[in-house]
Every structure is written in C-alpha cells, then in structure tokens.
Design a protein around this nucleic acid. Structure first.
Length: 711
DNA sequence: ATAGGGTTAG
C-alpha cells in the first residue's frame, strides 16, 4: 500500500517534481549595450501559464523595449537618451562638449544643528504630546497652548522633530505656521514630510510640496527624495517619476540619494533597461556608486532571477573598489537564491565571513531558506550549528524560517527542539505559522498521532488555525485512513474561520481517491461539498457512465477555469485517480486528454530523432498509468500505419528529492510489470527504458493488426 | 523615528 500513498498532493504540490528551471530573463550585461539598438522584449510573462483556459495557448503581448522607454526618452533625458541608445561607448566624444551630467556629485549639505538650552522642557512637552490620544483634534490643539517656551524657530523645530504620529506632526506644523512668528523654512517641511511618510500619507505630502511651490519655499534634494520614496512606498510609481522629472525641470540636479531612490522606483517597476541606462549615465559622468546603489541593482536582478545581472553587480563593485556591506551581501544572497544558485550563495556567504563581516538575522534567514529549498540538509545543519556556536543573532522570522527548512528537508527531531526553544523563549513565542510548519513536518512524515496532538495544543493555546495547517492535517489523516479525525479537523477549522482554498479541496479530492470504503468516501465528499459544491457535482458527473464526453468537456472547462492555476493539475490528477479507482478507465483517458488539451500537462511527450519520451513526473499514480496506456495506444497505431519510430523509448517518473514524496517510481514500475511491458529501470533512477525492437514486438502482441487490413 | 536612499517568512 505504501506505494499508493504518494498521491497527487505529493506529486503536484511539491515543486521539485515539476520543471522549475528558471531561465535568465535578461541578457548578459556585456551584451546589453549592443542590444539596446534593437527592440528587445524582456518580459517574463511568456513563462507564466495563462489565467484563463483556452484551447489555443495564449501568448501575452508585452510592450516592446522602445515602448517601455518612451516615457523617459520623450521627457527628461531626451537628448542624452538617444545618444546612449545608438552609440557605443568607444566612440570619440568631443572633450570640449562633455556629456551633461545627470546627477550632482555633491551631496546636499545639511544645516548644522545648534544647541537649544530649553531642550529638557521641550522634550518633556513633546513626550506629553506623544502620549496623548489623538482622537479629538481640539484636545490636542488645546494641549499645544501649554508649550513651555514660545514656539520660535528653534523650539518649534525641536518639538516637530520629537513627534511620532503623523497626525500630530502635521497638526503641529500647521499650528506653528498659523502663528506667523517666522517664515517656514525647507527643513520644517522636510521634517513633517518624513513623519507623513511613516503614515504613508502621500496626498498630504504632495499638498505640502505644492504649498512650498506656492509660497516660494525652496524644495531641496531632501524634499524630493522624501516625496519620491513616499510615493514609492504607497505604490504610486507614476507620482514618484513625476516628481523626479519635475525636479530636473526646475533646474535642480539630484544628488546620489535622490538618484538611488529613483533607481529603486524604476527597479520596482521592473524597468531594468531604464535602471541600467540611468546607472550607466551617472557612472559615465563621474559618479562612484555606493553600497546602497548596488543593493538596489542587486535586488532588481534578484527579483528577475537573473544570475548574469547579479554577477554584473559583483563585477561592478569590484572594478570600482566598493566593498559590499552586510545589507548588500544580504540582497545578493537572496538574489542568488531566487536565481536558483545555492552553491554560489554559499560561496558568497563564505566570502562575507572572510571579509570579516558578521551575518545578521536577515543574512541567516536568506541562507537557511536557500538551503532548505535546495534540500541541502548537510549545509543547513552545519549552518545551524555554526549559528549556535558563534551566537549569531536570531529573531522570530529566522526561527520560523528554520522550522520551514526542517519541513523542507524532513528534520523532525531538530524541528521539535527548535519549537521547544521557541516556547521557552520570551521574544519568539510560536505563532500560527510556527505551528503550521510543525503540522507540515508531522503531516509529511506520516505522524498522524503527533499532528493531532499538536492541533489540540494549538486550539487550547488559542492560536489561529490557518488553511495550510488544516491542509497538512487533512492530508496526513487521509493517508492514515483516519477519516473521522479528518472530518473533526475540517469541521473545527471551518468553525475557527479557515476559508478553504483550492489546495485544501485538491487535498480532500486526493483523499477521496484513496478511500477504500464508500462510507469513508462519502464522509470526505461531505467535507468537499462544503468547500466546493461544484467540484462534487463534477465528480458525480464523471463517474456516471451515462455522461457524454461533450458534457464532461464543457463542465471540465468550467470547473478548471474557476480553479487557481497552481491547483489545476492536481485537480485533474485526482479526478483521473478517482475514475480509475471506480474502474472508469475510459473516462480517465478522456480527462487526461482534456487536461492535455487545456495545457495542464505541458511537456508530457518529448521527441528527438533518437528517442521519444514520456515525462510523468508531475502526474499522480493513476494519471501516470493512464498516460502510459495512452502512449502505448498511440505507438500501436503508428506501428499499424508503418510510420517511423526512433530506436529508444523512455519513461521518466523522477525520484522525488523529498524523502517523503517517493513512490511514483515504485508504483509505475509495478504497473509496467503487470502489463509485462518491456521497459527496464535504467541506471539513472526514475527512468525506464525500452528499445524499439522489444516495444514493437510487445505492442504487436497486445494490439494485433486486423486481419482484414492485410488483405 | 530626531530633515533624504537599500536587505528578512508564510
């Protein structure tokens, strides 16, 4: 039975079984300069599955590079932009007319802070304002009149700087301004805007900026960078760019702080080309970027999963002799993880240690996550030992990341130790995600008893159950055939506010496929009915022999279309398993056909001149068997039509790198044996091979050619 | 959080 236990849930919800190869979405930076003259499309949308089902695959159109560059080239950087787009760097430039600079190499100077003899009184006053409740503005205003010293320039500035909530800062600013004791200088606006930024009050910030323009108060680099970063934090990227361009128009040159803020804006917009163009322009006019600018670039390439870009950042830093700090290392480590380079992340981490830097919580979180996802148990454990030995800083997020890593790798005892550490700590008490990680570990390890105990503990502690925890438990209890417990957990979770999602439904569906008694199946069905009534209706429809194919096709389309993209294939896998369990083999074939038709199984068949292969790594046991049968039928027809076949045939089940998700290879092997198919285990695990000769003779015995067709 | 830019989970 153990082999059957690997259901669609294991197969499809564990990413290592699907093709997760990431493609570099970006050209090597060395190629960038040449390629800019061409129209480039650097969007990753073509790698995503379409959200809506159509029989024809959809290719999403994205704006071409020239279109993407238009807003910038048409406005701020008009003259310069066209030049950099068309001319390589080596072209001789007239030295009497050097390129116009895009940023000021001098940072904005700050006014010196002068000592205020009233500091004690004023601080105490500010504290009082901070602790008062700002529900009634009039109450706050009456408190302001109790200011111990007259609100002249220096006193007002000190109080303004000490206020926390943006409402209070804003009110205080207006109060001071209305007194007309002195003209409001730029610094008053800047301090207030910073506070408003904490409250993400972009609209108010913009109002203040326009007020400055109206009153003739100078906007400096600090003002602009505050406006830009506030817009950025409020996801108002258009506004950020608008104010950046406005700055140029008023004749003010950004310094490196404002400049790297705007680089980050373009980076968040995923406008990689613009970022690099701005970066190179600035460097060409003498800017030596600092660590923060490189961190922005590194993050951008990390988000694109672009390894070449990350390497480019490292090279640039080296050639400009800028030493990465901890934040830059953190960003680049994370980026390496996203680019799927755990080994390079490890080297980078070692380099960081050799440079004498001490990793912080974020460094370790990034690395633990990378090792966990890569299932590098040895490195993960070694890092953990090192963390403890060197007493590197730990925080709540790191604890939970370590727990998730244990779940990824299957380290039950270590997770239990960590979990107990958390319980005993003061700062890092387990939250619902810590519990969920533990449920995941017990669930995937088949420890139904421990999982149930933890669930009870969770309920007693009043920890919120989430949908993932519920899903882990349902899966575990389903495998253990503890259907009554499953129903209990499901009921309680719903009562506690869990909203079932498609993964949970897929999990219930896979348990249904496993149920041996119809009594159990009905219990699970009743749960599923509460989560997704239409799915249950569809199950009843497909197991009914009388249902016509066209009806199945229409309903399939509706059901799958209403399902989240990542749960579509698991649904289809489970539906096929259910049909096979009820001996509706033809229906299973129809479902596999429909799944293929709607793009749920890309890359199932692969052909080269030498070999044809069937890749069932992302299929459930039943779906894999159905796919094999379908393949054999197709090959038999090809033989009948006497068409060419390659020398070698290959079926790939994969082995599942997760120690909990094996079993497809075993059950597939068993199925081959039952069919007495001539596929043999190859030297490479999870691959079955047959020669043309063996396969043809076997197929001819299975599907003998019709006598009449020979006549 | 004491006038401006960059890094952490599910």
């Amino acid at each position: 039975m153990a082999t059957v236990l690997t259901t669609a849930i294991d197969v499809c919800f564990n990413p290592q079984n699907s093709d997760t190869k990431k493609h570099s979405l970006f050209l090597k930076p060395s190629l960038l300069r040449q390629s800019r003259t061409r129209k480039l499309n650097i969007s990753c949308s073509s790698l995503k599955q379409p959200k809506t089902l159509e029989e024809e695959p959809i290719t999403t159109k994205t704006p071409s590079l020239s279109e993407q560059l238009k807003p910038l080239s048409a406005t701020t950087l008009r003259q310069e932009q066209t030049q950099i787009l068309s001319k390589p760097k080596s072209v001789w430039v007239n030295p009497t007319r050097p390129k116009r600079s895009v940023l000021s190499l001098q940072r904005q100077k700050r006014s010196a802070y002068s000592y205020n003899p009233q500091i004690k009184d004023l601080r105490a006053f500010a504290q009082k304002l901070n602790s008062c409740n700002f529900t009634e503005k009039s109450e706050f205003l009456s408190l302001l009149d109790e200011i111990p010293h007259p609100p002249d320039r220096d006193n007002a500035l000190l109080v303004l700087n000490s206020l926390r909530e943006w409402q209070k800062t804003h009110t205080f600013f207006n109060w001071v301004k209305s007194k007309n004791l002195f003209p409001m200088e730029t610094i008053f606006y800047n301090v207030s805007m910073k506070s408003l930024r904490f409250g993400r009050q972009f609209q108010l910030i913009e109002e203040m900026a326009l007020e400055m323009v109206k009153d003739g108060v100078e906007l400096d680099n600090i003002t602009y960078s505050t406006i830009i970063t506030c817009a950025k934090r409020c996801n108002l990227y258009d506004k950020a760019i608008e104010w950046f361009e406005r700055m140029y128009k008023t004749g003010l040159m950004p310094d490196e702080v404002t400049y790297s803020a705007i680089l980050d804006v373009y980076s968040k917009l995923r406008k990689v080309e613009e970022v690099l163009s701005l970066y190179e322009r600035a460097v060409a006019t003498g800017w030596k970027p600092d660590a923060i600018a490189f961190s922005v670039l590194g993050k951008m390439f990390g988000e694109a999963g672009d390894y070449d870009g990350i390497r480019y950042v490292l090279q640039e830093m080296e050639s400009m002799d800028v030493k990465p700090n901890v934040v830059v290392y953190n960003t680049l480590l994370e980026a390496m993880g996203r680019a799927g380079k755990p080994g390079l992340a490890r080297s980078l981490f070692n380099e960081m240690l050799e440079a004498g830097l001490t990793p912080n919580e974020k460094t370790l979180t990034a690395l633990v996550k990378i090792y966990g996802k890569a299932r590098w148990a040895k490195d993960a454990l070694q890092l953990w030992e090192e963390m403890k030995a060197k007493k590197w800083p730990m925080d709540f997020i790191l604890y939970n990341t370590l727990l998730n890593m244990c779940a990824d790798i299957g380290l039950e005892e270590e997770a239990e130790r960590l979990f107990n550490d958390m319980k005993e700590s003061v700062q890092c008490k387990p939250d619902n995600f810590s519990y969920t990680a533990m449920l995941n570990i017990y669930g995937s390890g088949g420890k139904a008893e421990k999982a149930m105990k933890l669930f009870e503990e969770m309920l007693e502690a009043g920890v919120q159950v989430n949908v993932m925890g519920c899903t882990c438990l349902v899966q575990c209890l389903g495998k253990a055939k503890r259907i009554d417990d499953l129903v209990y957990v499901f009921d309680l979770s719903i009562q506690r506010g869990v909203k079932p999602d498609d993964r949970l439904c897929g999990c219930l569906l896979s348990v249904m496929a496993l149920c041996e008694s119809s009594e159990d199946a009905e219990k699970v069905m009743a749960c599923l009915e509460r989560a997704n009534r239409k799915l249950v209706t569809f199950v009843n429809l497909i197991v009914d022999e009388k249902t016509e194919f066209e009806t199945v096709k229409e309903e399939f389309k509706l059901v799958i279309n209403a399902t989240q993209v990542e749960a579509r294939r698991p649904f289809c896998n489970c539906l096929i398993d259910i049909c096979r369990g009820k001996k509706r083999h033809e229906r299973a074939h129809e479902l596999l056909y429909l799944g293929t038709l709607f793009g749920l199984y890309p890359g199932l068949h692969n052909k080269t001149i030498k070999e044809w292969s069937l890749d069932v790594r992302s299929l459930s046991v039943g779906a894999a068997e159905t796919a094999l049968e379908e393949w054999m039928r197709t090959l038999a027809n090809i033989i009948k039509r006497q068409e060419d076949l390659p020398e070698l045939f290959l079926a790939q089940t994969g082995t599942g790198t997760h120690r909990f998700s094996q079993g497809l290879a075993n059950s597939f092997a068993l199925h081959l044996q039952q069919l007495s198919a001539p596929f043999r285990q190859s030297d490479r695990a999870g691959i079955f091979v047959a020669t043309k000769e063996d396969l043809v003779s076997w197929l001819e015995s299975k599907f003998p050619p019709l006598v009449t067709s020979q006549a």
